[in-house]
Amino acid sequence: MSVSTPTTDDLADWYTDLTWTRAALYALVLLGVVFFLAPLETGLMTAFKSNAAVIRTLPFLPPFGDGFTLDNAQFAWNHLSGPLLNSLVMSIPATLFTVLFASMAAYGLTMVDWRGQLAVLSLFLVGVFVPYQAVLVPLARFWNNILPLGKMVAPYVAALPYFTENHAVLVPLIITHVAYGIPIITVLFRSYMQTLPTSLVESAMIDGASVTKIYYRIIVPLCKPMFAVVFIYQFTQIYNEFLFSLTLIGNASSSAATVTLVLPSLGASVSGMDFGVRMSASLLAAIPTLIIYVAFAEQFAKGLATEA
């Protein structure tokens, strides 16, 4: 039948199109996967190679035979376990406070019906983009000379188990991270809160709820998805941050040094090209954020998308 012929042709065309362009697409996707994973893959392989194997073998091949060693990993662990803990001690409370303050700020700025609102919001927004260098000199002077909070709390910190007086420097560091983390998280929260129907807040107002009650009974529960996003985002940011640690802790050999502070100097201190150690240490330092990232990949991607 003549009617059925064109249908078959169309289907055949569609089928060839599918095979060829699709194959090319998947090849490109695969190329991308290789590109993005290669540095991590060679890093991982090298992390478990002996010095001899690092030089002798191809960087992307897994270690084998006597080329395999856990010495580097052991070395990295010995040098980084303390800093890892310091990083967590700094990042977790800093993240919690940032998120708390920022969610409050965003709530306040979303529900106010006031002409100055845009001006205040703009100040938060500009704060997102200020390079830390622009406040670094005053920041160092402030915590060293004007308000030596580290020295002030040192005795109390030293009284805690595990911690030493040196760790007191983490207190001003946490406050610094909170202060500079507020703008971006506020902006993230606000963009989310704006998508909530205003009638919910209005209804609660008419129901007689106070501003505070509306915050913790209505807004916080409704923003749960955003809380997940910003916790992950901000923890990663603070854990990965280097410049504040460098200026406020300063010395990589301090017992309060964070992972990011120790890692570059660890690389530099190891003479020659002991990449086995460097890679072990790098991947060890990357573990907390990688775990969070892989476990919460969806929220992470969402956070990135809303940031824009």
């Binding site: 890093g43 990663t236 280097f242 990011t260 991947l283 990357a286 954020t289």
Partner: peptide, 13 residues
């Protein structure tokens, strides 16, 4: 997800 500190090491290699 990685810190600049870490990616710098990876790219050195």
């Amino acid at each position: 997800a990685l810190s600049f500190v870490i990616t710098a090491q990876l790219w050195l290699w």
